[in-house]
């Protein structure tokens, strides 16, 4: 799956989980850019992404992503293995 396809799917997950149709993500989007994306919501986003891509993030990763691009890095890395 290309990075762009992953981005699109993550975008859908964000829309559904945060219940906000207007979210448009790009690789540089950060938590601070989206109102509802707080630490609690982050847990739900992680859970939804893990289910969707059938992967497990490490606890260390979850806390250290700086932007959506780094989330895609993590997903890429796991799906390619």
């Amino acid at each position: 799956m290309s990075r762009n396809e992953v981005l699109k799917e993550i975008n859908e997950i964000f829309i559904d989980t945060l219940d906000n149709q207007e979210i448009v993500l790009d690789e540089s989007t950060q938590a601070a850019d989206i109102d509802q994306w707080d630490s609690l919501m982050h847990v739900l986003l992680v859970d939804a992404m893990e289910k969707h891509f059938d992967i497990r993030f490490k606890s260390g990763e979850i806390q250290n992503w700086k932007n959506v691009g780094e989330i895609i890095d993590s997903i890429d890395q796991k799906s390619n293995n």
């Binding site: 630490s39 609690l40 982050h42 847990v43 739900l44 992680v46 859970d47 497990r56 993030f57 490490k58 606890s59 979850i62 806390q63």
Partner: peptide
Amino acid sequence: FNPSVYINTEMVLGI
């Protein structure tokens, strides 16, 4: 129980 949720949030109940 989801250990990673617990470590990151202090919540013990799995989603």
